[in-house]
Structure formats: C-alpha cells, structure tokens
C-alpha cells in the first residue's frame, strides 16, 4: 500500500486553514442577518493567533488529562478529516477507515473533552460533559441510520467508495432516500457542532452552555487547540454532508485544472451549507435541554424512513 503524501499534506493544510474561515464566515453572516456589522470573516485566525501567544493558567486541581486533551482533540479532528473526500473523490486516508472510523475518531475526541471538563473540579465543566455526552448519545443512532442509508445504497462504508458509487450508472441523484437521510444528517450536524437550536456557540451564560462549558478552564494555546479542533470538526462534518449527498465536481485526477475546479465546487457546497446553518440559527430559539431528544428522534425517524424508502419506493 502506498500513501499519497502530497495529498495528505494538502488536505491537512486545507483542514487547518479553511476551518477558521468557515467559523468566521458563519458568524459574520449571522451578524449581517441580524442587522449588525459583525466581526470580520478573518477574526477567528486573529483569535487563534492571540490565544497561541498568551500565557496559560492551568488549574491546580487538574491532572494530565487536562493537558493531554487539546492534543487529542486536534489530532482526532485532523485524522478524521483526512478520511473525508473533500476536493478529490478519494480521501488521502480513505483506506484507513471510512465513515465508522470517522465517527469513532470524533467520539474519541469528545470522550477526552468530556473528561477534561470534569478534570478541574468545577461544576460548569461537569455540566458541559454531562450534557454533551447525553446529546451525543442520542444523536448517534440518527447519524448511523443516515449513514447506513448511504452506505447500503453504495455498498460500502468507505467514503471514497460511496462517492465513486455515485458516479456509477444507475445511481439516482438525490433520490427520496438521500433527501430524507440528508435532512436527518443535517439535524445531527447542528447537534454535533453545537449550533442553535441545540447549543448556542455565542452565549455567555455558563449555566446554559454545552460545548463551551467544557472549555471554560482552558486558556492560551490549549484553548487555541480546542477551538481549532472544534472548527476542524465542523468543517469535517460539513464536508461529509456536502460530499456524501452532493458528490458533484469532485476531482477525478490530480491535474491542477481538475483540482482547482474541485476546490471551487467544494467551496460552493460549503457556502451553501453554511448559509443553511446560518438560516436555522437566525430563525430559531434554542430548544429546552430536554426537548433536544425530540429533535434528534425526529432525525432518527427521518433516517429510518430514508432507509425504508431505499427499497420501498423503487
């Protein structure tokens, strides 16, 4: 087996560089919709640079888990990202694992983040961990069901193979099954990336936080790694959604022209998805914590319907 080193480097760079931009873009668009000027699109880069340069305060109650977690989070997000086709049909690490491994890697990051929330002996961290793990658990079946729908129609859990399957004859573009699965997956995306109506990434109220609560004790470069990891995770999930359900314009070979076109397509799809996310955030209030399961079970039902429709409606 040969690893395509340039592709790995390129995609790593893409993940690292594109993810803050995506966050910045979403924030900016949200502000625009609310009639605010909002922060610059580039602000997340400045934030990260600022965090990296800052001194750190580490709680004296915390153990090595606290120091270890930022690395785990960043690396799992990156590794997961390398398994997703972004610009080309084949992901650089496609052979190392498909969508199941991707979910697993993200779950590993979450596991450690939740531990790090408990580590400094503060209730806010525990609050975040407890809620995050609950919501993640309920999101999981819906996500798996949606993934299964795609994987079953493609005959593989390997993302590259799923994308390739879409280019084979007999594959219908965005049929009912895919549409339903996409809807389910989109809800899961909102939950996994901590967006309204599940979590509010912009809140200052510790008591309502989920994701942010676990980060409260972090500062300096660890905070940068955590924020960056979360941004990469968001990019990865959005790329997954974009390319799994709309496998259009993926570069078939490594010529600059094809790659450039692929990049444009990718950017376009991400922008569309980001716009959808912004729209949802703009028009919704955050759900009550114990209504989130209702939303996610709706996603699960959608995904199940998607699966049923793979063989009932054809």
């Amino acid at each position: 087996m040969k690893l395509d080193l340039p592709a790995i480097v390129a995609q790593t760079a893409l993940l690292l560089l594109l993810s803050p931009l995506l966050s910045g873009l979403i924030k900016n668009w949200k502000a625009k919709l609310q009639n605010r000027r909002g922060a610059r699109v580039w602000q997340p880069y400045f934030d990260l640079a600022k965090f990296l340069r800052k001194d750190m305060v580490v709680s004296e109650h915390a153990s090595w888990i606290f120091n270890f977690t930022p690395y785990v989070l960043l690396l799992t997000a990156l590794t997961a990202g390398l398994m997703v086709p972004m610009v080309t049909a084949q992901a650089p690490l496609g052979l190392f694992g498909g969508v199941l491994a991707l979910v697993g890697m993200l779950a590993l990051g979450r596991f450690f983040m939740a531990l790090a929330g408990l580590d400094p002996a503060t209730t806010f961290g525990g609050m975040g961990s407890s809620r995050e793990m609950t919501i993640a658990a309920i999101a999981e079946p819906a996500m798996m069901m949606a993934i299964f729908t795609v994987a079953i129609t493609a005959g593989s859990t390997n993302l590259g193979q799923i994308v390739l399957a879409s280019q084979r004859p007999g594959w219908e573009f965005f049929d009912p099954a895919h549409a339903l699965a996409f809807a389910a997956m989109f809800i899961v995306l909102l939950a996994e990336t901590g967006r309204i109506p599940v979590d509010n990434p912009a809140t200052h109220l510790e008591l309502t936080m989920i994701h942010e609560a676990m980060l409260l004790e972090y500062s300096g470069r660890y905070l940068a790694f955590m924020e960056w990891g979360a941004a990469i995770k968001q990019l990865v999930l959005m790329a997954l959604l974009a390319n799994l359900f709309f496998p259009l314009g993926l570069a078939a070979d490594a010529t600059p022209a094809a790659l450039g076109l692929g990049l444009l397509w990718f950017a376009g799809k991400l922008l569309a998805l980001a716009a959808a996310v912004v729209l949802v955030e703009f028009t919704n209030a955050k759900l009550r914590l114990f209504r989130v399961p209702d939303l996610l079970s709706a996603a699960f039902i959608l995904a199940t319907l998607a699966l049923v429709s793979t063989f009932l409606f054809r």
């Binding site: 509010n200 809140t203 919704n284 209030a285």
Partner: peptide, 16 residues
C-alpha cells in the same frame, strides 16, 4: 429574555 434562549434575532430588534 429572547437572548437568554438564544433567539438573538429578537434581541437585536429590541436593542435597536
């Protein structure tokens, strides 16, 4: 009240 339930749109409206 709207901002505390993350309905920022109304909040911004009210602030104006």
């Amino acid at each position: 009240i709207c901002t505390d339930v993350a309905f920022v749109t109304a909040h911004m409206h009210a602030m104006r």
